[in-house]
Nucleic acid binder design. Structure first.
Lengths: 127, 127
DNA sequence: CCGCATCCTGGGGGATACTG
DNA sequence: CAGTATCCCCCAGGATGCGG
């Protein structure tokens, strides 16, 4: 996809298999990005992730990890010890994704105060 | 927030007013990014946006525009003509956000095929 | 033309209990 | 330890109709 001129951008947003829609729909859920960033420092185990990501239920952790695995962002390895140990790690694709999300995250960090100020200003004006 | 060592990153994800959670929750919905990118070429009117963004209802367009306005990403201007004309444009903050999302979008564009291939591979293996 | 109000449904996602 | 299976609630968001 070109994305080189105005027309392309407009079509870009409309297309059904538009990458924005597809990837953002996957990544933009409640937990995906949090899990991704919890794995940037290296592999981690199921229950460790669960305790590190505040508020996630095991149901959603399992489900989101499956989705991330399906999209090729995360690898799942079972170590047949007793008790069983399962490790999750970022794939190269997952690392690339996380890296490209990092720009957004650091922007959000930098401008978080601006955003909250804008919200307060808006809410105050509407009483 | 530092984000300079491992400990910070882990806390980062857990904090309640964590910028990732806050901004992604706002931006990661079904329509926000699509609207943002529909405005990068310049201001646009309500119904023009509606027709350019495939599948959006006027209810969700209104609501998402309000949220974007509240966060200071979009400016709303009413021209008291007959019939009324309302123009939406990116603020400087909104332009900054859109620009920082662009890295993710272009990554998604580049690797869209890889993701779809991973999905097919995963689905095939699980029958 | 631009939206708000209302109604209604699907599925995201929490809580809990049970297996290998 | 790492899930799977159920139940259930809530609300994102579509459809429709009205008002300035």
């Amino acid at each position: 996809m070109a994305m080189s001129n105005q027309t392309d951008k407009r079509v870009f947003v409309q297309s059904d298999d538009c990458p924005i829609r597809d990837v953002v729909a996957q990544i933009g859920d409640k937990w995906s990005i949090l899990i991704l960033f919890s794995l940037v420092d290296g592999p981690d185990r199921f229950n460790s992730l669960k305790s590190r990501i505040e508020g996630i239920s095991q149901r959603m952790l399992t489900q989101t990890l499956r989705d991330l695995e399906r999209d090729g962002f995360v690898n799942r390895t079972v170590y047949p010890e007793v008790p069983v140990k399962v490790e999750y790690k970022l794939t190269e694709l997952g690392k690339g994704l996380t890296k490209s999300v990092w720009g957004l995250v650091s922007w959000a960090d930098t401008h978080h105060d601006d955003i909250r100020a804008a919200r307060q200003h808006y809410d105050a004006r509407k009483q």
